[in-house]
Simulated assay, not measured.
Amino acid sequence: MTTAEAIALVTAARTPDDLFGGDASHRAYRRLARLLHPDLAPGAEAAEAFARLAELWAARGGTPGPAAETVITTGRGTYRIGGVFRRGASAVLYESGPDTLLKLPRSHADNDLMRREADALATIERDGDPLLLPYVPRLVDSFRHRRDGVERLANVISRAPDGFVSLDEVRRRRPVLDARDAAWIWRRLLVAVGAAHRAGVVHGAVFGHHVLVHPIDHGLVLVDWSQSVPLGTPITALVTRHRDDYPPEVLARKPATPATDIHLATRSVAALMGDRAPTPIKRFVRGSLLSPPGDAWRLLGELDDLLDDLYGPRKYRPLHL
């Protein structure tokens, strides 16, 4: 079966039985999921078919999550599994407590993404600056979950407190931000990636849907570390819809450096300001993209100097959405 045939099959399906009516329902789901997975089949049609496949699979009662189970007990704790918190391209987040979320890959083929995230968060907690840990989620637990003969690696991670929204949501509500509002987001994002780099980790996917901010408290959390790699290791798990946003060295499979995250972070913040940023900030953005420095802390210092020259002493500005 080709990807085009899989798209046509899922698009034509009206009920779960149209796709999973035989005895080998799990095999049918896994085969279609591999053909339509966003990391392997780029394009809007494949993405829509993949989402539709997930809906039909869930409607059948075959969602790749805990399903009817309400409690999972591991050596580290007991987690009550609630409803779906968010569905991503490669994983599903489930409610698992007032302060935690359980993350399961849609397919066992993506267990490596969960392992990357678990390794990155554990490394940052172990080797990072304790004062900067709030900028990343905390890994609460990581374990193997088996259901219907399929084993998936699950991560339990801390969830951002109420009031945090993604940069994608900020752009949806406020298409263009004043540079002074974007500035505090940029500063905190540089701190987040800088803290990871000091611990030897590159996030590798600093995009708007992975950056959560609190508009009033000015907090920031950089989430979804499943594409992360150790410094000096090529990034192999790309977010397909952001392929054009990656710097050339990533597409060439060269070793990831701090400049990789700095490039992506700069693009994310520049998108918030659009064309309304003052000329000095536009020049600063252009320079950061053309030749990203290899040190987030150095760039943060240069940014602070620029902001001081433009705006003087810092003043608190709530970001009204």
Rank of each mutant, 00 (worst) to 15 (best):
R76S: 13
E45N: 09
R86C: 04
L303E: 10
L303V: 04
H210D: 15
P105A: 00
D245C: 09
L56N: 06
L307E: 15
R188V: 01
A44D: 11
R298F: 03
V201Y: 06
Y94S: 09
G82W: 06
G88M: 08
V150S: 03
P255Y: 07
E45Y: 02
R243E: 15
G287E: 07
D275I: 05
D178M: 05
T233L: 00
D148H: 11
T73A: 15
W57E: 11
A4I: 02
V206M: 06
R180E: 14
V71K: 04
E48P: 02
V71N: 01
I262W: 07
A109C: 07
P16G: 01
R314I: 02
R52W: 00
V211T: 10
E55L: 05
I72W: 00
L189H: 12
D162M: 12
R171S: 12
G61C: 03
A296D: 15
Y29V: 12
K103G: 11
T260K: 05
P234Q: 03
L290G: 15
L189N: 10
L220W: 14
L102K: 02
G204S: 08
K282Y: 00
L222V: 06
V201I: 15
P161K: 13
L113P: 04
P215N: 05
T240V: 08
V206L: 03
A120N: 04
R27V: 11
P255D: 11
D244Q: 10
G163V: 15
A49Y: 01
I157W: 03
P230C: 08
F50L: 08
G149H: 02
L189W: 07
D295G: 06
D295V: 03
A58R: 09
I72H: 04
G43L: 06
V223L: 07
D127R: 15
A252I: 08
R34C: 05
E69D: 12
G232C: 09
A277P: 12
P16A: 05
L231N: 03
A44W: 00
P280G: 10
R267L: 14
H108K: 03
L299N: 06
A120E: 02
R298P: 00
P248S: 13
V285H: 11
T260G: 12
L272R: 08
W297V: 12
D261N: 09
V223Q: 00
H209T: 11
P292R: 04
H263L: 05
T70P: 03
W186M: 13
A120K: 06
E95W: 05
R174P: 02
L139A: 14
L32R: 07
V193T: 14
I185P: 10
R116W: 01
V201A: 05
P258E: 14
Q227L: 01
E69Q: 12
R115V: 14
D304P: 01
R317C: 01
A49P: 07
V239D: 14
R174V: 10
